[in-house]
Design a protein around this nucleic acid. Sequence first.
RNA 1: AGCGGGAUGGGAUAGCCAGGAGAUUCCGCCGGGCUCAUAACCCGGAGAUCGGUAGUUCAAAUCUACCUCCCGCUACCA
Length: 698
Amino acid sequence: MSHEEFPTDRPAVVTCGLPYANGDLHIGHLRTYVGGDVYARALRTLGQETAFVSGSDMHGTPVAVNAEEAGVSPETFALEWHETYAETFPKFGVEFDNYGHTHDTTNVELTSEIVRTLDENGHVYEKEIMVAYDPAEEQSLPDRYVEGTCPYCGERARGDECDEGCGRHLEPGEIEDPQSTITGNPAEYREQTHKFFRVSAFQDYLAEFIDRLEGTANAKNQPREWIEGELRDWCITRDMDWGIDYPDGEEPSDESDLVLYVWVDAPIEYAASTKQYSERVGADVFDWEEAWKGSADESGGEVVHVIGRDIIQHHTVFWPAMLRGADYVEPRAVMASGFITLNGQGFSTSRNRAVWADEYLDEGFHPDLLRYYLATNGGFQQDVDFSWERFRERVNNELVGTVGNFAYRALLFAHREFDGTPDADLSTEVRERIEDAIDEFTAAVNDYSVRAAGDAAVSLASFGNEYIQQNEPWNLVDEDPERAAQVLRDCVQVAKAVSVLFAPVAPGTADRLWSQVGGEGSVHDVTVDAALEPPAPDFGEPDELYEKIPAERVEELNAKLEARVAEAERDEEGDADADDDAETDTTLEPVEADRIGFEEFQDLDMRVGEILEAEGIEGADDLARLVVDIGVEERQIVAGIKQLHDLDSLPGTRVVVLANLESAELFGVESNGMVLAAGEEADLLTTLADADPGERVR
RNA sequence: AGCGGGAUGGGAUAGCCAGGAGAUUCCGCCGGGCUCAUAACCCGGAGAUCGGUAGUUCAAAUCUACCUCCCGCUACCA
């Protein structure tokens, strides 16, 4: 890699994070793939030799678990998703030079080779750790095959992560009270030898690397916490069948059926996929080894990883360490995209609150429209909100009104009056404006800004509209035909330049525009220089590039989305009701539909208290006056618990008190707080064990 | 809790890394123009003390410190 400006004379590799072969794609996923595709195309437009690669991530426990549920082999399961992805991406104009998967021979071989190199270079060591094991089934239980209690917070947790409690990652062997997720059998721990990658040895290297790394700010900054802190070594093997075997270099023995952890072979697919591309087109066209192997300073390609911002650490810590340890190049840049929200809220696949890739296509919209939205609605690392209303707005105003309208009016006029490009020289003003647009585009690519690259073309088209409007060629045709020819010559040139600069974002429609100005071949085969080359002297009648989206479509689409979400919610409630009915006849209030945030929960200051005194309040049927010790102080609290009758037995009872409730006066008695109780019978909440008065309830 | 990202006219967004004239663009609002163009387009206007406080500077949206609020990450969610 180098730090020269793009284009450089080295081969570039643009990669997209591997989609995990485990479910449908929605437009949130597409954000990353469209971004990568736009970036790769933009590099090529600058004249940079570029390979654009990705592949499906086939391994790992979620695939194995879901395949088992579906009753098929993990390979069959993952391959089905792989094929779906491979078919879906091109439908959005996301055209990888190679799209492989992590289970193909190329990746299996390259992964084995790289791990063997790491081993030979002394970066791998063995360590005995305790792993969960199901004695009844005689089966090891890696990662999500086991659940139990988090050793840090005590919450129920999955084997690899405390997903509902503290959110911590759990290394194999950490979880307490382990239990098999397959059989529900209690699991036991057995000692087993696993392989560890000495990430800690790369601390100094990574500290320098992160300073050199280009790309989005989040990718450059987020990993600093780890790199500048203490790096833990990384367990890179799992005891399961599905995955790439650990390359022992010896005869496969029965006792070792360890496979590599999925995050080891996944990023290697970037290189393996490039290798497949190289093998297909020939090393003279693209040499994967030149791109991936040269030493960091002297040679090697420009590797740019385009990922979602949830997997930054893998691409800025583990992966560069692996590359370094195996004598490969280091990535030049990591572009980490923000997420997509839907009408301001996060996607929720379980509640079907998402816009699915297939769904978008089924609605009959051109992929370029969504590409434009996703690529230019905000900075790449920013979260972007999607709404059909906003989608319509941007399509109608920017694509139809600005780009499409300019191209159409300019070319139609030129065609009618001049049968094509008028015979005149390009004016200096317009030449300079186009040069500015090219500079803007080039700067955008070097700044890793997908948005700015797309905007360069749209603002150029906007300039075109101003230019044609101010010069009024429709009046000049009679008054001053020469001047009219000049103006139209300029406009056709602008249209041609727009086609070239818009090609990365809108590959389909830009190519149509290219043909409309009489361009030969495909706009995707030309570079920025073409923007200033003279357009064809003759071209036919243009047609419109984009169509407006009527307001009714938006209403329709929103209604569909709402109906779908409602249906998903009903299903969920239905399931819940069915469970409840089996256990109880009493009518329970439904759970509040509106969820509150953790912050709001924290606003409630609940304490453990001990009742010191309890007496009925005269004249009140249900009220009792309590004095409660809540550790920090004693509180007088009025509570509606007279149904319990046995007020005398209450002193000494532990209760839960909402301590920061505003005070109130009931029957002339001041009440400072609320004692929590359940149901009509005022069943008091108490603590099970040793919490002292004053302890906060969380 | 630590870390990362963010807060910019009514809404949405750019600019911040490399401080410097009227703070960008889209929507919406008000007024005008044009008729080549998809009721498209162009011009003008109103509307922002750039989250808060303090500082650095001749000059701060931009740099520094502290604070508030939103989103996320913390080792398998794009």
